[in-house]
Computed example of a mutant assay.
Amino acid sequence: MDRWQAMRIFVKVAETESFAEAARHLHLSAPAVTRAIAALEEVIGARLFVRTTRSVKLTEAGGRYFDDCRRILADITEAEAAAAGSYATPSGTLTVTASLLFGQMYVLPIVTDYLDTYPAMTARTFFVDRPVNIVEEGVDVAVRIGRLPDSGFTAIKVGAVRRVVCGAPAYFEKHGVPSNPAELKDHRIAVSTSAWASPEWRFAGDQRVVIHPTLHCNTNEAVIATAQAGWGLTRVLHYQVGPALLEGRLQVVLSEYEEPPLPIHVLYAEGRQAPAKIRAFVDRAVAALRGNRLLN
């Protein structure tokens, strides 16, 4: 096995922390992956991984070698792609992930506009309300809401969203407007079990209110529809009710008690060495999301 292929295998094992997962991603047998790593360790003269029955972790030498291998492989990929033209013109398939409702409302229009601009491209969206591992699940670009853990990915902040308590004007005319979080106990509450499983709502100043919902729904769309119908109050992310707020179908209350907004980032792995398909989409997404007044 040549050195370039062995380095590719080493990097994939380090990223997945698993010989079996690396073999699956690279369409190799597990013994072939094991032999490649053993050969590298023999050539280098240092142990690259600490192996246990439950995990595979880089040694100190392995960590330094991992950084160098990623840089070398990225340079090779860039050179090959430049020769093929893919760094000049978007080509291939782009995979984008975001949370379910945010993806449908704000990311999908960017994707379709992107495909209209680059008709040779195809795209795959992966909108789910769970963290997605960009490397393991083959994602090119992620749009994430919330504070990000440290990683080697490039993250561009494009906006922020608030958690808001809202209801229909007709509801407030009939039941009054709560003037502080403690008064929520006097109101009918609908909650989404998929997003807000905790019975405790937090507000600024470390205020915490235990909510006793009258209605539990399994989707955000259902609780939003219930609030718009004037049945009760709910708490959702601001972007989820943006159009309803602009049109006056819902109004926000207790805004002075809100916690700090959650940041929105566009996240991708390759940084400045990203191929044209990713760079073109990121530029478009950053401009569109930053320009959306509901997200800023």
Rank of each mutant, 00 (worst) to 15 (best):
N133V: 05
C166H: 00
T95D: 07
P90H: 07
C166T: 01
A88P: 01
E173Q: 13
E78L: 05
K174A: 14
G152S: 09
A79S: 10
L94V: 06
V132I: 13
A168G: 01
V111Q: 02
I134L: 12
N133C: 11
T112Y: 04
R147N: 14
A142P: 02
E173P: 02
V111G: 05
L101I: 01
A74F: 05
Y114P: 00
E136L: 13
P109A: 05
V158D: 04
Q104K: 08
T95I: 05
V128D: 09
V107E: 03
R163M: 11
D116W: 04
P109D: 01
M105K: 07
S151G: 08
V128I: 12
A79G: 04
Y171R: 09
V141S: 06
Y87I: 00
A142D: 09
L115S: 04
R130C: 09
P109M: 00
Q104Y: 11
E78W: 03
A81H: 06
A120S: 15
F127Y: 15
I134S: 11
R124D: 12
A82F: 04
P119S: 14
V107S: 00
S151R: 04
G152V: 09
I110Y: 08
K157V: 01
A155N: 14
R124H: 10
L101F: 02
T97C: 02
E80A: 07
Y118S: 05
V96I: 09
G138F: 13
K174C: 05
D113A: 13
V143N: 00
E78Q: 12
A170G: 08
R130W: 13
G152H: 07
T112G: 02
T117A: 14
P149Y: 06
V139R: 00
T77P: 11
P131L: 09
L148T: 05
V141Q: 04
F102W: 06
E136C: 05
A74M: 07
Y87L: 03
R124F: 08
Q104C: 15
V158G: 00
E137R: 12
D150N: 08
V135W: 15
A79L: 07
P169W: 12
G103C: 09
T93Q: 12
I145K: 02
A120K: 07
D140R: 04
Y106I: 04
A82N: 13
P119K: 13
L108E: 10
P169E: 08
V141N: 01
G159A: 13
A120W: 03
T77I: 14
G85T: 06
P149I: 11
D113C: 09
I156Y: 09
S86G: 05
V111A: 03
A81Q: 07
